[in-house]
Design a protein around this nucleic acid. Structure first.
Lengths: 226, 226
DNA sequence: ACAAAAGTGTTCTTAATACACCCATGT
DNA sequence: ACATGGGTGTATTAAGAACACTTTTGT
């Protein structure tokens, strides 16, 4: 490949991340509000252009740090999106490398504003507004990937708060995988994996019979759950 | 993103494909021999730099057509490789978009030579030489992806010749997945899927008891096999 | 007749599914 | 006392794993 060849001259690489967490038993995705054109004032996924001198993962982490303050995100590169001709106002021919990120929201402080963003929001995955660029497509694709990941025990541990109830866990699964499980069978399955333990505490969430609180064991192997 | 910013100026995108087929019951990958530096005379996967004005899939197909003549390949984008500082002689900061390709070798004519290649070879996956760039890493990763794909019935149909024997099929699985199956259980499993049928023909492969020839039914759904 | 690989059925074990009753809480 | 959601055990069904003998061909 020759540098002077016009065929190759105007290309660039975006890194874009759909960062998920669980809050109140619901799956949330992190959105930022753009300060500048294009798509000024639109909500968008976290991301930006890669520099010449950084590798992909470092670039993704830098963007996430700059725009949200988060620095303990677990990242999975899951897809590539062609941005040829799709991005108004960007004269480069861009390719977007899409990442899925996982954090425990309760252990994570986020910053509200940055150089290019004016707000930030943990948005319920079930109710996402129109996003900038083709970020809705990227998010949909990330949610599909999340369905694959959620059946791994070590992801669950990264995603959930320290203590949680069995119905919360089941709700999470049913929401992401979009199907229902029998309460008894679900419990049996999860307990048989031997990755969580009873804390001997209880909470009453909706003023009904209290549910037991569970927590993950200190070290768990990565097992497939469904 | 501003075009004049030096941070973004020298980036480019490679598309690279590990193209697989089955020959004599063995999994083969398509390699080309390079005509020019860097890595002159080395074997390599099929690929090259993306143009400004084409999208990723078109670029990949163009490269495959140019270097091998193949135009009926089924492509899956499966990973992205960071080539920052890894590629001698290439002044651009490259990212390699990696594809897995599937063809039926017997139905495919390949060309021996092209502008940048001097030879081409269906190489046994179990016995691959040192490749140019970091193509061995990419190939290993493609083989991992192939393990996921091989359990889908429609991939099998794309990969295998029109007629095949049960031991050939089993060998293929055992080679890719790196484990052994019981002959009777394997047969039972495959037949229960209802995607292949008996041709009432037989072949003797090694001068032993002949095996039955099977073929795929005309239309099969995509089912998970293991 | 013997070596080499192919074909075939049954039993056992394990995992997944279906299902009904009692319990603790707030109003 | 009642409405709401949480907790528990058993019986059935389906899927996967284990296993041995007979058949065909070439030498």
């Amino acid at each position: 490949m020759r540098v002077e060849n016009e065929l190759y001259k105007k290309q660039g690489i975006h890194v874009i991340s759909a960062i998920f967490t669980v809050e109140e038993g619901k799956m949330k995705v992190l959105l930022i509000k753009r300060k500048k054109d294009p798509y000024k004032d639109s909500w968008a996924l976290v991301g930006g252009a890669l520099y010449n001198n950084e590798n992909l993962n470092d670039g993704m982490k830098r963007e996430i740090k700059e725009k949200s303050g988060i620095n303990n995100v677990r990242l999975y590169q899951f897809d590539v999106f062609d941005e040829l001709g799709k991005t108004p106002g960007i004269p480069f021919r861009m390719v977007a490398i899409a990442y899925l990120g996982i954090v425990d929201g309760k252990r994570t402080d986020i910053i509200k504003e940055s150089r290019n963003t004016k707000n930030i929001w943990w948005c319920d995955v079930k109710n996402v507004p129109n996003l900038a660029f083709s970020h809705n497509d990227i998010l949909n694709s990330a949610v599909e990937k999340l369905k694959d990941l959620i059946v791994q025990s070590d992801i669950l541990k990264a995603l959930l708060p320290k203590e949680f109830t069995m119905p919360e866990l089941q709700n999470l699964y049913e929401g992401i995988l979009n199907k229902n499980f029998d309460r008894r069978n679900f419990r049996k399955k999860i307990l048989s994996l031997n990755i969580i333990e009873d804390t001997n505490k209880e909470v009453s969430i909706n003023g009904n019979k209290p549910s037991k609180l569970y927590k993950f064991k200190d070290k768990i192997e990565c097992k497939k759950i469904f």
